[in-house]
Design a protein around this nucleic acid. Structure first.
Lengths: 329, 329
DNA sequence: ACGGTTCAGTGAACCGCTTCACCTACGGCT
DNA sequence: AGCCGTAGGTGAAGCGGTTCACTGAACCGT
């Protein structure tokens, strides 16, 4: 039988004060230095620590930040999540991480769930940035969006995806590629992502012959999607909308005995740490994950600390050329 | 101004029932089919959904499972966390993930924090399985340990680390390696991990010349630790206690112009999905991550659903030979 | 000496749900 | 008819904090 925990009333009893006074004292409010000391001592003595749930119910705050990821199977999003967790910890906050598994319906459910959990703020990498519920959500707590812009957020770190896509496609074109397969992450339902649309527009402009397919982030799934792609009408290059997916292309190529980049060029998008370690190194679009983490943490902190001005950080891409894209023969 | 949410009393009012009845009805308890239907309709009408915080305070349960990771910088633990999250979701539970960052003090603090959050159960990959506070914790909620055994848990998935270590070292010895560097994860303070101890014992038995060093899980950190190792008195093989760390050795070797495995053999421990994709493929000890995930989810579910019997799953390692370990010249 | 501030602290009403003890009406059984 | 068992429902007391309105005393300047 676990010994019951001390409550605030016991501390009050022990010090001869009211529960209210103890509550204030422990938060360093409204009481004299002397009683504060007394209360602290008694609390330590009794091993008292405020119950976060009760506190959340009464005050509506938790000190937690919600982190809602579109799909945690994506290694890049994993890195992002870990980075943000650590960044927040340095500010004495915790991250509550939820994974929408690429499903917009879950995204909605989880976002609301996090609100109900009284997170002080929400960082989200949205699957469907255009969805209607975001508006309502942004009204009830500070939201920071990463990736795509959401209306009404308290701050956002958006990627200049148009630029990133252009950069990638131009690079491929410059090396002579014309028939290019594009692999984008699978989504449960597919809201038209701005970046996706931009791909076809840009391909048009550059006179490229594009074929779009989807692939899951997980290595096994991505590999099998890539296998289909490479065995059918094989393109000269594959542009993957996430490094995770590009890894699947490597795996499929290996299976099929195809050489990267001699038989097929591969281009990624993210720059995950592992991308530099592959042979050949993955040529990819680098979004500076550390910068994004820092910006997101800064924005959410500002917003929850009552910062009022809406902030927008636009992340510019860099082409990270390694060995996976070659000039077409 | 966000419209206030409906409470249970409003639903009660709307149906002409008592709050208690509504509470029961929504959980399918103690009420007639007919009122249940009426309540459901009214709830839907009002957009009512029970507040998880209030519910947690009153009932002491949340439906959440805590997941406490030793160090989320480790890619393998990331995979584990994602896998467990998904596995739990299928059982309509959520995982609350916390990262102890390799620090036993944080491990303690977070474990208690999770208990205070009223998680229904805790899955932990302990840094310091021998610490005293676990006992108290296991008394107050079901705990499942992964990796090393903890006293008093409701279940555990333990790795047969002795066997894994022996397997790895024997493999290296069989290929003629004698001077072997061992790279283990950095810990804030270093409780003597059983596995670590076993390494020196086994090295002794096999007549190997071992040098132990530590490295962080992050690629940058691991790389720099490996660089030091490889520039000093270079061993013929490096045995890393995590694939993440082995990746750092690859990176360092690449920087230094050393060939794996011609100049230095590398052996991992985990089998992360990326390990097969590197060139050469990382020879490693495979713990069957999917099996572990399944077992952990099963155990914690059983334990929280009032399962009483203590369960112990011992995970056996498999040597996954790829190309990173060569016969010594 | 007196009204007006400030300071430290109090009581009680929440926050929104669960749960325990109790109540009522109804049907069945003997 | 009388009694009991049960299904269906009610009221109120929590859960463990926070917060708001208020009080009593000390202090202030005039």
């Amino acid at each position: 039988m676990p010994r019951k925990r001390a409550t605030i009333r016991e501390v009050a009893q022990a010090t001869g004060l009211s529960p209210a006074a103890v509550s204030y004292a422990l938060r360093g409010l409204q009481v004299s230095e002397e009683t504060m000391e007394r209360v602290r001592a008694a609390a330590a003595e009794l091993g008292y620590e405020a119950d976060p749930i009760a506190r959340a119910l009464a005050s509506g705050r938790t000190g937690m930040i919600g982190l809602l990821c579109g799909s945690l199977e994506d290694l890049w999003q994993q890195s992002l999540a870990v980075g943000i967790s650590r960044g927040l910890r340095e500010k004495d906050r915790y991250a509550l991480i939820l994974d929408a598994v690429g499903d917009p319906a879950r995204e909605r459910a989880f976002a609301q769930r996090l609100r109900d959990q009284r997170v002080d703020g929400l960082i989200v990498q949205p699957i469907d940035p255009a969805a209607a519920f975001w508006g309502e959500l942004c009204d009830s707590l500070p939201v920071v969006a990463i990736g795509d812009s959401i209306k009404g957020t308290a701050g956002e770190v958006v990627f200049d995806n148009r630029r990133g896509v252009t950069m990638a496609l131009e690079h491929l074109r410059d090396l002579g590629h014309r028939r290019i397969a594009v692999l984008t992450p699978t989504r449960a339902s597919t809201p038209d992502r701005p970046a996706d649309l931009h791909v076809t527009a840009e391909a048009d402009r550059l006179g490229l012959d594009i074929e779009v397919a989807t692939a899951p982030h997980g290595l096994a799934g991505a590999t099998s999607a890539a296998r289909d792609l490479l065995t059918a009408r094989r393109p000269s290059a594959v542009f993957c909308f996430a490094d995770s997916i590009a890894y699947g292309v490597y795996a499929a190529a290996q299976e099929l005995g195809l050489d990267v980049p001699a038989d097929v060029s591969v281009m990624g998008y993210d720059d995950h740490p592992m991308s530099g370690l592959l042979t050949p190194g993955l040529t990819t679009v680098d979004w500076d994950i550390d910068g994004i983490v820092r910006a997101a943490v800064r924005l959410i902190s500002a917003a929850t600390d009552g910062g009022t001005r809406r902030r927008r950080v636009v992340q510019a891409p860099t082409l990270r050329e390694r060995g996976s894209v070659a000039r077409v023969r």
